[in-house]
């Protein structure tokens, strides 16, 4: 019983990062109707950014967020202006399909680039807090992973507040709901798209940093994380960031349960099966409201 409870807790901890990873994808998909399948590679880049910040600059791993997030914001703006911005003129179906292809090519290129820069080895960041563990009711909670959960939740909360109250956050929501009406109220919709894409990339960078601190990364984790984020988006739908975060926790728990029931190697399968089933039940209305 304690073993299962322990698994569930660990599932919740990793699930918070699934939620954070999915939030960026969901923001970009919901606002721009662009499906960026290179999202996982952006997470991977964020992770290596943090790795560099710690290894080269000697920063505290969590403080690396302050460097990685702004850098990812800029990278996102560049990617939008250089690549994804060009598909925005097409109608929605062509836009999603072309963005998928662009993301696909970008994913391959970024993966190859990461192998060149950092080799194919798995890496993680040793934290000063090391392997400290808190024990509550017989469950051991690794301090570092608790911190990543707290930070993931804080970031989601900040995003939620930005979208609700910041002027441009409201503009982003308006553009997501009806871009023509947004233009007619004087909103620079293209800039709202640029901001949303940059924020989505920044979230990917933050997720990558936390993944590297609490777990580990390698150049090939991109596809896995893109799929995780897609699964969560499918589970939680679009529109609510807090809902997306909850969806991430749910996926973490589902994986833990399936690992307990069918054995560790099937951890990855459960999410994919959920994903395919939901897709098949709601083939069109999936991402709609």
């Amino acid at each position: 019983m304690t073993v299962l409870a322990q698994q569930l807790v660990l599932g919740l901890l990793i699930g918070s990062l699934y939620g954070l990873a999915a939030a960026g994808l969901s923001l970009v998909f919901g606002v721009l109707k662009v499906l960026n399948v290179a999202h996982g590679e952006l997470i991977m880049l964020g992770g290596y950014g943090a790795f560099w910040a710690v290894a080269l600059l000697g920063m505290d791993p969590f403080a690396a967020l302050a460097l990685v997030v702004p850098a990812a914001l800029v990278l996102g703006a560049v990617l939008f202006l250089g690549l994804f911005g060009f598909v925005m003129r097409a109608d929605e179906e062509t836009r999603i399909k072309n963005s998928l292809l662009i993301g696909f090519g970008l994913a391959l290129a970024l993966h190859a680039l990461a192998v060149q820069l950092w080799t194919a080895d798995e890496r993680s960041i040793p934290t000063p807090y090391g392997g400290a563990v808190i024990t509550v009711a017989g469950l051991s909670l690794p301090v570092v992973r608790l911190l990543t959960l707290a930070l993931a939740f804080a970031l989601i909360g900040a995003l939620h507040l930005l979208l609700a109250h910041w002027r441009w956050g409201q503009a982003i929501r308006a553009a997501a709901e009806d871009w023509q009406a947004a233009l007619l109220t004087g909103i620079d919709v293209r800039r709202a798209y640029l901001l949303a894409f940059a924020m989505g990339t920044a979230l990917a960078g933050a997720a990558g940093t936390l993944v590297t601190i609490g777990y580990s990364i390698s150049p090939s984790i991109g596809l896995e994380w893109t799929l995780k984020a897609l699964i969560v988006v499918v589970l939680a739908g679009l529109g609510s960031m807090l809902g997306t975060f909850t969806g991430g926790l749910a996926l973490g728990v589902a994986e833990a349960v399936s690992a307990a029931a069918f054995g560790g190697p099937y951890r990855e399968v459960v999410g994919l099966v959920i994903f395919v089933v939901v897709l098949l039940v709601r083939p069109r209305g999936l991402f709609g409201r």
């Binding site: 929501r173 308006a174 709901e177 009806d178 023509q180 007619l184």
Partner: peptide
């Protein structure tokens, strides 16, 4: 615009 086109969730 025709049909109002408001931001319905706000």
């Amino acid at each position: 615009p025709e049909g109002r086109r408001l931001f319905g969730s706000m």
